[in-house]
Amino acid sequence: MESKEKVQEKAAPPKPKKSAFREWIDSVVFAVVAATFIRWLFFTPFTIPSSSMEKTLLVGDFLFVSNLHYGARTPVTPLQIPLTHQTIWGTSIPSFSTLIQLPMYRLPGFTHIKRNDVVVFNYPGDADEPFEDVSIGNGGYKDFPVDLRNNFIKRCVAVSGDVLEIKNAEVYINGVKAPVPPHAELYYRMESSDVLDDRFFDKENIQDYSALPPDSARTGVQRYQIRTTPEIVETLKKYDFVRSIQQIARYNASISEPGIYPAALAQNQEFYGPIQIPKKGLTITLDSVNIAKYGHVIKYFDYNDAEKVNVTKTQISIDGKPLTQYTFKQDYFFMMGDNRYESADSRFWGFVPEDHIVGKALFTWMSIDPNPKSFIHKIRWNRLFRLIE
């Protein structure tokens, strides 16, 4: 009869308990990784620092931007300190390294950029400034990879392939007058039977206004120039003393305004175009007018080696070969601020390439007034969790 021997296995030694410091480090690392992943793939928080989108977005608004709508972009610059953009917090030290640069791809989204979308994008820069040799302290967007250039927010007024024209300060897309966003600020001439003072304009939330010389042929009529929104205009029309109110242009078609894109064409911000927005697959003839409109795009943004592209007023050549036609390799968009007279946008620096698009602005979750009338008005409660239209 065989004897059975019981073999007693040694119990595994208990794992040493993590110290409180180690648990804290693990929690921080997990939180940073999770936040970085969420910011890249899902939503990115932004703050509004300027008035170019008033009154749709106000200085001090905090908003969330969806990366999912148009599809998140894969990082171009993977060697970067998490949760930073261009520099380490509170310093001028770069937060990234360009030792590794990857090609950019866009993950599938569930929609495409549409006219009237409020979009965040990386600033492509002023087409009429020299692109090379610009230091970080002087227009530094040119020294950063595409995904680390300054973030701008504007409204997309024209998508790739559209023909845009501005006449008498009104935007036309493909020959049809485009709807004006309800919070866009435009200039109007208002006639009133009463003399209006600062209290009236302040009550109506109109900050830019001035009295015009009276019309000698019409007694008892006061004239004012105001900058406000179509929404407020509808409110003003309800007053019995408001005789008329009409949108006006401050320029005429013959005026050439400095700084308008492209500089070679005589235009201004109220009389602009017509100009076709480049579209992937669109082929154009490279005459002198189209070179003025699209030469900068072809050289710097359409996936050509800029060092091999030579652009003159009458000819574009790539790798020494003169071109008579050109076919675009990606889509582009035309962006404008809702505060159209206080906005540096596509009218001044040109088209936004598709690979510069960050995401769609969804809603404001907080709004802090930088110049409140009193402490209790510091938070704009009516703007909390407000959808962006």
Rank of each mutant, 00 (worst) to 15 (best):
L57Y: 10
F348G: 00
P230F: 02
Q225R: 13
S256W: 01
K313W: 06
S193W: 01
F131R: 10
A306R: 08
L57E: 09
G337V: 11
A158Y: 07
K167W: 00
F96M: 12
F110P: 08
T44W: 02
A20S: 13
D338L: 08
K313T: 11
Q276D: 00
R73N: 15
R22T: 14
K203G: 15
L107M: 13
M366H: 09
Q8S: 11
T91V: 09
V59P: 06
D345G: 03
T283S: 13
Q330H: 06
W40F: 04
D147Y: 04
L387R: 09
R227Y: 05
P75D: 07
I255S: 11
S95F: 07
K114T: 05
G137L: 05
D198C: 05
F201E: 03
P214A: 13
P353Q: 10
L107R: 05
A249N: 08
L107W: 06
F241Y: 10
A217S: 09
N310K: 11
V119H: 02
Y294L: 03
K373F: 05
L323I: 05
K299C: 02
F375S: 06
D302R: 03
P45K: 05
G337M: 11
Q246G: 02
P353S: 15
V221R: 13
R155S: 03
T314P: 00
T314K: 15
P372N: 09
F271W: 15
G125L: 02
F363L: 14
W349E: 00
Y105W: 12
K6R: 11
F30L: 12
F333I: 15
I284S: 00
Y341E: 05
Y172A: 00
L212Q: 15
S254E: 12
V180K: 12
V163T: 15
W365R: 02
V233M: 14
N67W: 01
S256M: 05
